[in-house]
Protein backbone atom coordinates (compact mmCIF):
# COMPACT_ATOMS: atom_id res chain seq x y z
CA UNK A 1 0.00 0.00 0.00
CA UNK A 2 1.29 3.42 -0.92
CA UNK A 3 1.09 6.22 1.62
CA UNK A 4 0.96 9.96 0.96
CA UNK A 5 1.11 12.88 3.38
CA UNK A 6 -0.15 16.07 1.79
CA UNK A 7 0.58 19.28 3.76
CA UNK A 8 -0.23 17.61 7.06
CA UNK A 9 -0.35 19.82 10.16
CA UNK A 10 -1.08 18.64 13.66
CA UNK A 11 -1.66 20.72 16.76
CA UNK A 12 -1.73 19.28 20.28
CA UNK A 13 -4.52 20.65 22.52
CA UNK A 14 -5.35 23.64 20.35
CA UNK A 15 -6.57 26.86 22.04
CA UNK A 16 -5.26 25.98 25.50
CA UNK A 17 -2.14 27.01 27.43
CA UNK A 18 -0.79 23.54 26.55
CA UNK A 19 -1.11 24.15 22.81
CA UNK A 20 1.89 22.73 20.92
CA UNK A 21 2.81 22.03 17.32
CA UNK A 22 3.06 18.32 16.59
CA UNK A 23 3.59 18.35 12.83
CA UNK A 24 4.19 21.33 10.61
CA UNK A 25 3.38 21.09 6.90
CA UNK A 26 4.64 17.56 6.34
CA UNK A 27 4.43 16.12 2.80
CA UNK A 28 5.97 12.91 1.46
CA UNK A 29 5.17 9.68 -0.36
CA UNK A 30 5.97 6.11 0.62
CA UNK A 31 5.81 3.70 -2.35
CA UNK A 32 4.00 0.41 -1.92
CA UNK A 33 6.13 -2.47 -0.56
CA UNK A 34 9.05 -0.17 0.27
CA UNK A 35 11.07 0.04 3.49
CA UNK A 36 11.09 3.55 4.91
CA UNK A 37 13.07 4.65 7.96
CA UNK A 38 12.07 7.67 10.03
CA UNK A 39 14.93 9.23 11.97
CA UNK A 40 15.31 12.28 14.21
CA UNK A 41 15.68 13.24 17.84
CA UNK A 42 13.40 12.29 20.68
CA UNK A 43 10.60 14.86 20.48
CA UNK A 44 11.21 15.71 16.82
CA UNK A 45 7.69 14.62 15.81
CA UNK A 46 8.42 11.04 14.70
CA UNK A 47 5.84 9.49 17.02
CA UNK A 48 3.24 12.10 16.10
CA UNK A 49 3.87 11.33 12.45
CA UNK A 50 3.47 7.56 12.74
CA UNK A 51 0.27 7.92 14.77
CA UNK A 52 -1.26 9.54 11.70
CA UNK A 53 -0.51 6.46 9.62
CA UNK A 54 -3.41 4.52 11.09
CA UNK A 55 -5.60 7.33 12.32
CA UNK A 56 -4.70 7.26 16.03
CA UNK A 57 -4.25 10.99 15.42
CA UNK A 58 -6.10 12.93 12.75
CA UNK A 59 -4.44 15.85 10.98
CA UNK A 60 -5.55 19.30 12.11
CA UNK A 61 -5.29 20.17 8.43
CA UNK A 62 -4.03 18.39 5.32
CA UNK A 63 -4.64 14.85 4.10
CA UNK A 64 -3.08 11.47 4.78
CA UNK A 65 -3.79 8.92 2.05
CA UNK A 66 -3.20 5.22 2.64
CA UNK A 67 -4.05 3.29 -0.54
CA UNK A 68 -7.56 4.62 -1.30
CA UNK A 69 -8.33 5.66 2.26
CA UNK A 70 -8.26 9.40 2.99
CA UNK A 71 -7.70 10.68 6.52
CA UNK A 72 -8.51 14.32 7.25
CA UNK A 73 -9.64 16.38 10.24
CA UNK A 74 -13.23 15.44 9.34
CA UNK A 75 -12.82 11.66 9.21
CA UNK A 76 -15.14 10.07 11.79
CA UNK A 77 -13.93 7.34 14.14
CA UNK A 78 -16.41 4.87 12.64
CA UNK A 79 -14.47 4.87 9.40
CA UNK A 80 -11.11 4.27 11.05
CA UNK A 81 -11.50 0.58 11.71
CA UNK A 82 -10.48 -0.61 8.27
CA UNK A 83 -7.46 1.70 8.45
CA UNK A 84 -6.53 0.21 11.85
CA UNK A 85 -6.67 -3.26 10.30
CA UNK A 86 -4.61 -2.45 7.23
CA UNK A 87 -1.92 -0.52 9.07
CA UNK A 88 -0.38 -2.59 11.87
CA UNK A 89 1.44 -0.68 14.60
CA UNK A 90 4.19 -2.10 16.78
CA UNK A 91 4.80 0.45 19.53
CA UNK A 92 7.95 0.86 21.60
CA UNK A 93 8.23 -1.95 24.16
CA UNK A 94 5.13 -3.63 22.71
CA UNK A 95 5.30 -6.38 25.34
CA UNK A 96 3.69 -3.81 27.68
CA UNK A 97 0.35 -4.25 25.89
CA UNK A 98 -0.08 -8.00 26.51
CA UNK A 99 -3.07 -8.87 28.68
CA UNK A 100 -4.75 -12.18 27.84
CA UNK A 101 -4.51 -15.49 29.69
CA UNK A 102 -2.73 -17.38 26.92
CA UNK A 103 -0.29 -16.39 24.20
CA UNK A 104 -2.69 -17.78 21.59
CA UNK A 105 -5.63 -15.69 22.77
CA UNK A 106 -3.55 -12.54 23.04
CA UNK A 107 -2.40 -12.92 19.44
CA UNK A 108 -5.97 -13.66 18.27
CA UNK A 109 -7.30 -10.53 20.01
CA UNK A 110 -6.80 -8.26 16.97
CA UNK A 111 -8.44 -10.58 14.40
CA UNK A 112 -11.41 -11.10 16.75
CA UNK A 113 -11.87 -7.33 17.07
CA UNK A 114 -11.76 -7.00 13.29
CA UNK A 115 -14.64 -9.44 12.91
CA UNK A 116 -12.96 -12.74 12.09
CA UNK A 117 -14.66 -15.84 13.49
CA UNK A 118 -13.11 -17.57 16.45
CA UNK A 119 -11.82 -20.34 14.21
CA UNK A 120 -10.29 -17.96 11.67
CA UNK A 121 -8.74 -15.86 14.45
CA UNK A 122 -7.08 -18.91 16.02
CA UNK A 123 -5.73 -20.04 12.67
CA UNK A 124 -4.38 -16.53 11.97
CA UNK A 125 -2.84 -16.47 15.46
CA UNK A 126 -1.05 -19.76 14.88
CA UNK A 127 0.25 -18.55 11.52
CA UNK A 128 1.48 -15.26 13.03
CA UNK A 129 3.15 -17.08 15.94
CA UNK A 130 4.93 -19.26 13.42
CA UNK A 131 5.98 -16.21 11.36
CA UNK A 132 7.69 -14.58 14.34
CA UNK A 133 9.37 -17.83 15.34
CA UNK A 134 7.42 -18.68 18.50
CA UNK A 135 7.45 -22.43 19.24
CA UNK A 136 3.99 -24.08 19.37
CA UNK A 137 4.42 -25.23 22.95
CA UNK A 138 4.32 -21.60 24.13
CA UNK A 139 0.87 -20.92 22.66
CA UNK A 140 -1.08 -22.23 25.66
CA UNK A 141 1.20 -20.57 28.20
CA UNK A 142 0.52 -17.23 29.88
CA UNK A 143 2.38 -14.43 28.06
CA UNK A 144 3.58 -13.15 31.44
CA UNK A 145 5.66 -16.32 32.03
CA UNK A 146 7.81 -15.77 28.95
CA UNK A 147 11.19 -14.05 28.64
CA UNK A 148 11.32 -10.41 27.54
CA UNK A 149 12.35 -11.30 24.00
CA UNK A 150 9.58 -13.89 23.65
CA UNK A 151 6.97 -11.46 25.02
CA UNK A 152 7.98 -8.97 22.38
CA UNK A 153 7.53 -11.59 19.66
CA UNK A 154 4.05 -12.37 21.01
CA UNK A 155 3.15 -8.68 20.81
CA UNK A 156 4.45 -8.44 17.24
CA UNK A 157 2.53 -11.58 16.27
CA UNK A 158 -0.55 -9.90 17.79
CA UNK A 159 -0.17 -7.12 15.25
CA UNK A 160 0.67 -9.39 12.29
CA UNK A 161 -2.31 -11.67 12.96
CA UNK A 162 -4.72 -9.03 11.64
CA UNK A 163 -2.93 -9.32 8.27
CA UNK A 164 -1.91 -5.68 7.89
CA UNK A 165 -0.56 -4.46 4.54
CA UNK A 166 1.54 -1.76 6.19
CA UNK A 167 3.69 -2.48 9.25
CA UNK A 168 4.77 0.46 11.39
CA UNK A 169 7.62 -0.32 13.79
CA UNK A 170 8.52 2.17 16.52
CA UNK A 171 12.03 1.24 17.72
CA UNK A 172 11.18 -2.45 17.74
CA UNK A 173 14.63 -3.55 18.93
CA UNK A 174 15.03 -1.16 21.89
CA UNK A 175 16.32 -2.94 24.99
CA UNK A 176 17.25 -6.18 23.18
CA UNK A 177 20.79 -7.56 23.22
CA UNK A 178 22.80 -7.45 19.95
CA UNK A 179 21.88 -10.96 18.88
CA UNK A 180 18.20 -10.34 19.62
CA UNK A 181 18.37 -7.09 17.63
CA UNK A 182 19.97 -8.74 14.60
CA UNK A 183 17.48 -11.62 14.66
CA UNK A 184 14.53 -9.29 14.92
CA UNK A 185 15.64 -7.04 12.06
CA UNK A 186 16.25 -10.10 9.87
CA UNK A 187 12.75 -11.30 10.80
CA UNK A 188 11.18 -8.01 9.65
CA UNK A 189 13.10 -8.14 6.37
CA UNK A 190 11.80 -11.67 5.76
CA UNK A 191 8.21 -10.75 6.70
CA UNK A 192 8.34 -7.82 4.32
CA UNK A 193 9.52 -10.02 1.44
CA UNK A 194 7.16 -12.95 2.14
CA UNK A 195 4.01 -10.92 2.80
CA UNK A 196 4.71 -7.98 0.47
CA UNK A 197 4.46 -5.51 3.33
CA UNK A 198 5.15 -1.81 3.26
CA UNK A 199 7.40 -1.26 6.29
CA UNK A 200 7.93 1.98 8.18
CA UNK A 201 10.61 1.89 10.84
CA UNK A 202 11.24 4.57 13.46
CA UNK A 203 14.80 4.14 14.66
CA UNK A 204 17.92 5.66 16.20
CA UNK A 205 20.12 2.90 14.76
CA UNK A 206 21.73 4.36 11.67
CA UNK A 207 23.25 0.98 10.81
CA UNK A 208 19.72 -0.41 10.43
CA UNK A 209 18.86 2.51 8.15
CA UNK A 210 21.93 1.71 6.03
CA UNK A 211 21.25 -2.05 6.00
CA UNK A 212 17.49 -2.15 5.41
CA UNK A 213 15.89 1.13 4.30
CA UNK A 214 15.01 2.10 0.72
CA UNK A 215 14.34 5.64 1.81
CA UNK A 216 14.64 7.70 4.97
CA UNK A 217 12.71 10.68 6.35
CA UNK A 218 14.50 13.01 8.74
CA UNK A 219 12.33 14.86 11.28
CA UNK A 220 13.38 17.87 13.37
CA UNK A 221 11.22 20.28 15.39
CA UNK A 222 7.97 18.88 13.94
CA UNK A 223 9.22 19.43 10.38
CA UNK A 224 10.27 16.98 7.72
CA UNK A 225 13.73 18.37 6.94
CA UNK A 226 15.03 15.80 4.48
CA UNK A 227 13.75 12.81 2.52
CA UNK A 228 15.71 10.51 0.23
CA UNK A 229 17.64 7.27 -0.04
CA UNK A 230 20.04 6.50 2.82
CA UNK A 231 22.91 7.35 0.46
CA UNK A 232 21.37 10.79 -0.17
CA UNK A 233 20.65 11.39 3.52
CA UNK A 234 24.17 10.53 4.68
CA UNK A 235 25.96 12.00 1.64
CA UNK A 236 26.70 15.22 3.53
CA UNK A 237 28.33 14.21 6.84
CA UNK A 238 28.58 17.86 7.94
CA UNK A 239 24.82 18.28 7.62
CA UNK A 240 24.23 15.00 9.48
CA UNK A 241 26.44 16.19 12.32
CA UNK A 242 24.71 19.58 12.42
CA UNK A 243 21.42 17.74 12.98
CA UNK A 244 23.10 15.91 15.90
CA UNK A 245 22.50 12.62 14.12
CA UNK A 246 25.07 9.86 13.74
CA UNK A 247 26.51 8.32 10.59
CA UNK A 248 26.30 4.56 10.04
CA UNK A 249 29.42 2.95 11.56
CA UNK A 250 30.90 2.12 8.14
CA UNK A 251 30.29 5.64 6.83
CA UNK A 252 31.92 7.12 9.89
CA UNK A 253 34.93 4.85 9.47
CA UNK A 254 35.12 5.73 5.75
CA UNK A 255 35.12 9.42 6.72
CA UNK A 256 38.27 8.81 8.77
CA UNK A 257 39.86 7.00 5.83
CA UNK A 258 39.13 9.97 3.56
CA UNK A 259 41.29 12.15 5.80
CA UNK A 260 44.06 9.54 5.34
CA UNK A 261 44.01 9.90 1.56
CA UNK A 262 41.53 7.18 0.57
CA UNK A 263 39.00 8.06 -2.11
CA UNK A 264 35.39 6.94 -2.42
CA UNK A 265 32.96 7.58 -5.29
CA UNK A 266 30.11 7.75 -2.83
CA UNK A 267 30.19 7.41 0.94
CA UNK A 268 29.97 3.67 1.75
CA UNK A 269 27.20 2.92 4.27
CA UNK A 270 27.91 -0.72 5.16
CA UNK A 271 31.06 -2.76 5.83
CA UNK A 272 30.40 -4.62 2.56
CA UNK A 273 30.15 -1.44 0.47
CA UNK A 274 33.28 -0.13 2.16
CA UNK A 275 35.25 -3.31 1.39
CA UNK A 276 34.12 -3.19 -2.25
CA UNK A 277 35.22 0.42 -2.57
CA UNK A 278 38.58 -0.42 -0.99
CA UNK A 279 39.36 -2.75 -3.91
CA UNK A 280 42.16 -1.15 -5.88
CA UNK A 281 43.17 0.93 -2.87
CA UNK A 282 44.61 -2.03 -0.94
CA UNK A 283 46.98 -4.85 -1.90
CA UNK A 284 45.43 -8.25 -2.72
CA UNK A 285 45.79 -11.11 -0.25
CA UNK A 286 48.81 -13.34 -0.86
CA UNK A 287 50.88 -10.78 -2.77
Amino acid sequence: MAITFDHVNYMYQPNSPFEAVGLSDVSFTVPSESFTAIIGHTGSGKSTLVQHLNGLLKPTSGTVTVDDFQLTAKTTNKHLKSLHQHVGMVFQFPENQLFDQTVERDIAFGPLNFGFTNEEAMSLAHQAAHDVGLPDELLKRSPFELSGGQMRRVAIAGVLASQPRVLVLDEPTAGLDPRGRAEMMAMFAKLKADQHLTVILVTHQMDDVADYADQALVMAHSNLIKAGTPAEIFADPEWVKAQQLALPTAANFAQHLVTRGFEFDSLPLTAEQLAIQLRGQLPKEGR
Partner: peptide
Protein backbone atom coordinates in the same frame (compact mmCIF):
# COMPACT_ATOMS: atom_id res chain seq x y z
CA UNK B 1 1.58 4.62 29.75
CA UNK B 2 -2.23 4.40 29.71
CA UNK B 3 -2.26 6.49 26.55
CA UNK B 4 0.30 4.24 24.87
CA UNK B 5 -1.56 1.06 25.79
CA UNK B 6 -4.86 2.56 24.62
CA UNK B 7 -3.24 3.45 21.31
CA UNK B 8 -1.80 -0.04 20.96
CA UNK B 9 -5.16 -1.68 21.65
CA UNK B 10 -7.03 0.75 19.39
CA UNK B 11 -4.57 -0.22 16.66
CA UNK B 12 -5.61 -3.83 17.35
CA UNK B 13 -9.25 -2.93 16.73
CA UNK B 14 -10.54 -2.04 20.22
CA UNK B 15 -13.16 0.71 20.26
CA UNK B 16 -13.09 2.42 23.63
CA UNK B 17 -15.89 4.89 22.93
CA UNK B 18 -18.32 2.72 21.04
CA UNK B 19 -21.07 0.26 21.87
CA UNK B 20 -23.15 -0.40 24.94
CA UNK B 21 -22.09 -0.47 28.57
CA UNK B 22 -21.02 -4.15 28.53
CA UNK B 23 -18.94 -3.67 25.38
CA UNK B 24 -17.25 -0.61 26.84
CA UNK B 25 -16.47 -2.38 30.11
CA UNK B 26 -14.98 -5.29 28.18
CA UNK B 27 -12.82 -2.88 26.20
CA UNK B 28 -11.29 -1.66 29.46
CA UNK B 29 -9.82 -5.07 30.39
CA UNK B 30 -7.03 -4.96 27.76
Amino acid sequence: EAQTIMNAQRARGVEFNNGGLIKRLRAIVP
